[in-house]
Design a protein around this nucleic acid. Sequence first.
DNA 1: CCCAAATTACGATAAATTTCGTAATAAAAA
DNA 2: TTTTTATTACGAAATTTATCGTAATTTGGG
Lengths: 127, 127
Amino acid sequence: MSVAKYLKPTESELEILQVLWEKQNASVRDVHEELAKVKDVGYTTTLKLMQIMFEKGLVKRDASFKTHIYEASVSKKKAQKHLLKKMINTLFSGSSTELVIQALGNHKTSPEELNEIQQFLDNLKKR
Amino acid sequence: MSVAKYLKPTESELEILQVLWEKQNASVRDVHEELAKVKDVGYTTTLKLMQIMFEKGLVKRDASFKTHIYEASVSKKKAQKHLLKKMINTLFSGSSTELVIQALGNHKTSPEELNEIQQFLDNLKKR
DNA sequence: CCCAAATTACGATAAATTTCGTAATAAAAA
DNA sequence: TTTTTATTACGAAATTTATCGTAATTTGGG
């Protein structure tokens, strides 16, 4: 196996993970109501997706009560790290510098944020 | 329509675009041989995918000869811009700074590259 | 205890993606 | 010209993802 399945969320799965990362843990209804704000989708669709995610190991759940409580089994940071790396490799010839420059160039970044990044760079160089 | 289809390449389509961006233009065989280096896949599969990409408008092709010559119809830069933006929104709460720090933190970046980025930042601040 | 409301389980279907075999076509070689 | 070789076209099947209706289950209220 090249990469574990839980690091390859689909679009819909990622949307659900978003909610779980934000709320820490949530029932299907909680998640569904968040999704329903921005998406026209049925409750059982969300339920089914979350059940599948459970089978894949993408989420954990506490089933001791009628209403199961779900939680992401991958941290947001880990997912970010993995997907970012993948993007750097597939779209930026493996160069994180290229990606950084692209990211800063395309989006308007405030002076405060630029300072923050510069400070971060300075710290990196010190090591 | 929310987003044009050509900005939503699938995994396999992205692999093919990689090759086309690198080679500028290429026949199905050219592309296939590149893919075959890293992937076990049949020739007609690559062909079919490229035909579908043509129908979607993801690639252009010159069919005046028997062997059609393909070319990406989206620039690498444009695809980078779009997919990066999408990732920032879905995974980094819309903050490019967050993404940048994550990207630099996770990958070992050489002092030369760090300097390059700093220079880039300085130029950004001047405007 | 029984019922109503909410939830999960299940299964079927649809849609999109990926795969490849076979046939048709074109070009090059003999 | 005939044969061989390479390529494209076509269509079907397999796989993955997304959708939702209906049935079964659980639980809290009356």
